[in-house]
Computed example of a mutant assay.
Amino acid sequence: MFRDALLLVVPISLVSLLAGCGQEVSVPATVRPAMVVQPVPSSQSMDSYPGEVRARFEPELAFRIPGKVSKRWVEEGERVKANQPLAELDAQDVRLQLDATRAQVAAAEANLQMVRSERDRYKTLMERQMVSKSQYDNAENLYRAGDARLRQLKAEFTVADNQTGYAVLRASQDGVIAKRLVEVGQVVAAGQTVFTLAADGEREVSISLPEQNYGRFKIGDPVSVELWTQREQRFPGRIRELSPAADPRSRTFAARIAFAGGKVPAELGQSARVFIAAEHNVPLSVPLSALTAENGVTYVWRLQGDNTLKRTPVQVGAYGEESVPVLSGLQASDWVVAAGVHVLHDGEQVRPVDRSNRAVKLAAKE
């Protein structure tokens, strides 16, 4: 009897043990995290144009007289001060001309002294009625002609003296030599550009606008500027100058962009990019990783107010490197899953987080 009772107790114990194990296995399902983002304006919202940082004032320096360059004291990119000598012409010819004019002035002074004495003598004789009035008038005219001739030669001497000084080209103001166009031994004409000076002070960005878009730009339009060395920041600016004629080679129109804010850390020659608002309606865009497709239909996983997912069909535009424009199906206030979309299903509840793994709270909709 004891054996039969033992056989009966053992199955009952096993059943109780199995029942207890079944209750421990029942674990609530975990809510998986999902990285979500909001649609942003597509990059098509801004037209961008490459440019170069230039000085606000860039005078072209030239000799005022022709001649052969005998000396050059500065190189391209060198900083100069106002009135600093930059280059010099062979001034032998202008010095000879100055000497010749000086000699003519001396001869004219001697002649004037002689005709003055002659006029004074004739004046005394006329007062004594020893010469006629016409003879005195002739002496007076010779004196006036001699005096006028001396003034003329003195003016010519001043011009020759100035030209001697013009043989040395000097900087008009503080700045940097942006371009050098001559070498020692080169013969230059009067007014031929020798150096381009980038004056100290304001900095601007020079860009070229395409012919087909030129008509929609005007002076004063707001823009933003991105410097190559500070790509994380954009500086406000405005269109200050528009060329009225296209470049004959590139068929583009030159434009100058002035910075609208305070001092900008822009150096001469730096690369820059100018962003100008597009004139057409701009679509929203989402990351490429947010898209999935099934049976030829493209859709995203949109987060609803109760943190559940809804498969939302969308119409997209041309694919970019990292994002794609969404032409219809989404609003700017929506949140969409940006990663792992191939393992999700409709109605699934998730825990939304941003790219920094911080919890995202959806704004309550009215």
Rank of each mutant, 00 (worst) to 15 (best):
E226N: 11
S243F: 02
F195V: 07
E241F: 13
E232D: 13
S250T: 08
V225H: 01
R238E: 14
N213G: 12
R216Q: 14
Q173C: 00
Y166M: 03
E232Q: 10
I207D: 06
G261I: 11
I239T: 04
K179H: 02
A189M: 13
Q230H: 15
L169T: 03
G261F: 07
D174C: 02
K179E: 14
Q173G: 13
I177P: 02
L197Y: 05
R203I: 04
G237V: 02
V194Q: 09
E204S: 04
G262M: 13
G261Y: 07
T193R: 03
A199E: 10
E241L: 15
F157D: 10
V223K: 02
T229N: 11
F253C: 06
T229M: 10
V176N: 01
A155V: 06
R170L: 07
F259Q: 03
V205L: 02
T229I: 10
A171Y: 03
Q186R: 12
F217Q: 01
R180S: 15
P236V: 04
R251A: 09
I177A: 01
R170S: 06
Q212A: 15
A155C: 10
P244Y: 09
T252D: 11
D221M: 08
D161M: 00
A178Q: 12
D161R: 08
V223A: 03
I257F: 03
I207P: 06
A245N: 06
A171W: 02
V159I: 14
V188H: 03
S224W: 06
V182K: 07
T164Q: 12
A199M: 10
R238W: 09
K218N: 14
E211H: 13
D200L: 12
I257E: 01
E204Q: 13
G165W: 02
K154A: 10
S208I: 07
G175F: 01
A254R: 12
R180W: 10
G220C: 07
K263S: 15
Q192H: 05
S243T: 01
I219R: 15
S172R: 09
G201K: 14
G201P: 09
G185L: 06
N213Y: 12
G175S: 03
R256N: 05
G165T: 05
F195L: 11
G215C: 12
V187A: 14
F253K: 07
I177E: 04
T158A: 10
A199T: 09
S243M: 06
F195S: 08
R231N: 08
I257T: 05
R180K: 13
G175N: 02
S208V: 10
R251I: 11
L242Q: 02
V184N: 09
A178N: 08
F259Y: 08
V225G: 04
F259V: 01
Q192D: 09
N213C: 00
R203C: 03
T164I: 00
T229S: 14
Q230F: 15
G261A: 14
A160G: 05
E211M: 12
A254C: 04
A171H: 01
G237Q: 01
V223W: 01
A155K: 06
E226P: 00
V188S: 03
I239D: 03
T158C: 00
F157V: 00
E211P: 06
A245V: 09
G262E: 12
Q173E: 14
Q233R: 11
V225A: 04
Q186H: 12
T252W: 08
S250Y: 04
D200N: 14
W228V: 12
G262H: 09
N162W: 09
I219V: 15
A189L: 14
V176R: 01
Q192N: 00
S172E: 09
Q192V: 08
